[in-house]
């Protein structure tokens, strides 16, 4: 037995036609009006069938289009994931969304520039087997890239053993926030390096890599540089050179920042002033600062306490407190507490 969608409606029409044929209407006028109503009913049924057919077709088309879109999205996602391994993910995203184009256009922007390299890379690796060198470099770059992406750095390029990254383009959280993110990233990288060094030693590498980092904040030209056919999204300018110069001056496992960066991050770091230096393309004298500590919950510093309120800022490095000062410190703190409890708020 077959089932059809409009069985009931068809039955009504059959019955209606049967009434007319049997002459069920004594009044010819009533029969005529009945016949007209039946005709209209047939027409309505036909139109209903047409509308349903159209609706089904439109739905099929929509599903087919959705399928095509889904396939295109999958291809685009795969392409984007692959491209993000060659280019900075932020740049890929900007290109795919159309925020950035491929014209040879550059902008002047205040960026925080990060430069790093491996101390004595050539000397350390000259007697190394290529497989060992590949292992060390790949594990080093993989770990550092993960940290860079976590902190939102735009990875410009790897140059041999060196890395050039920047904060502030194509996305920025503000000049100060960008500088802070860069310094936090640098500290996280050096901490990760210490763990990597242990792993490398355990695996038998006598001279594990030691990274040096230089950071500077200043106006750079950022954008597409090159030719119409082959270009790089990169940064240039004296401030970039200064970051490289700071990196060369940094101690192994150290982070050296310029006074411009220090001015932006001094609330979250402890740093020691180092001898002044000059850099190519920079007229002014540079006072570098070597970072010795950071106040950062994510990076975990149990001996550091940092709180800031309107009218009160506490920065305490308990590790550095002298035993003989403890009594005086406690006394001062108790005085402060007593005053705070006495004074009405506001």
């Amino acid at each position: 037995m077959s089932y059809e969608l409009f069985t009931d409606e068809t039955e009504i029409i059959t019955q209606g036609e049967a009434y007319l044929e049997q002459g069920a209407f004594a009044d010819p006028e009533a029969a005529k009006r009945y016949a007209e109503l039946l005709k209209q009913y047939k027409k309505l049924l036909k139109n209903l069938q047409r509308l349903m057919k159209l609706s089904d077709r439109n739905e099929e088309k929509l599903n087919a289009m959705a399928h095509v879109m889904e396939e295109k999205n999958k291809i685009q996602e795969a392409l984007s994931a692959n491209l993000s391994k060659y280019l900075s993910p932020q740049i890929v995203h900007s290109l795919l969304t159309g925020e950035k184009g491929t014209d040879l256009v550059t902008q002047r922007k205040k960026l925080t520039v990060f430069f790093s390299d491996i101390k004595d890379f050539t000397k350390t690796t000259e007697n190394m087997q290529p497989e060992d060198l590949s292992y060390l470099l790949n594990s080093y770059f993989t770990e550092m890239s993960k940290i860079a992406l976590h902190y939102g750095a735009t990875i410009d390029k790897f140059i041999g053993d060196a890395m050039l990254m920047f904060f502030g383009d194509p996305e920025t959280r503000g000049v100060r926030e960008d500088a802070e993110a860069c310094v936090r990233m640098a500290v996280a990288m050096q901490r990760r390096m210490r763990k990597l060094q242990s792993t490398w030693r355990f695996r038998g590498y006598k001279d594990p890599f030691h990274m040096r980092i230089g950071i500077n904040t200043g106006y750079c030209n950022v954008g597409n540089f090159g030719s119409e056919d082959r270009m790089d999204y990169t940064i240039i300018g004296g401030e970039v050179n200064l970051a490289a110069r700071l990196e060369v001056q940094a101690e192994p496992d150290g982070i050296l920042i310029s006074s411009d960066t220090y001015a932006l991050v001094q609330d979250i770091v402890e740093a020691e002033e180092r001898p002044k230096l000059m850099a190519k393309g920079i007229e002014r004298e540079i006072i570098p600062y070597a970072i010795t500590n950071i106040y950062d919950e994510e990076l975990g510093c149990p001996d550091l306490i940092r709180s800031e309120f309107k009218g009160l800022r506490i920065i305490a490095d308990l590790e550095r407190v002298n035993a003989e000062d403890k009594g005086a410190i406690i006394e001062s703190m108790e005085q402060l507490l007593a005053r705070l409890r006495e004074e009405p708020a506001g």
Partner: peptide, 16 residues
């Protein structure tokens, strides 16, 4: 080129 079901009802009405 394309019409949805409510538009189709009007097109059918126009034919009528």
């Amino acid at each position: 080129v394309y019409f949805n079901s409510p538009s189709a009802k009007y097109v059918l009405g126009l034919f009528d």
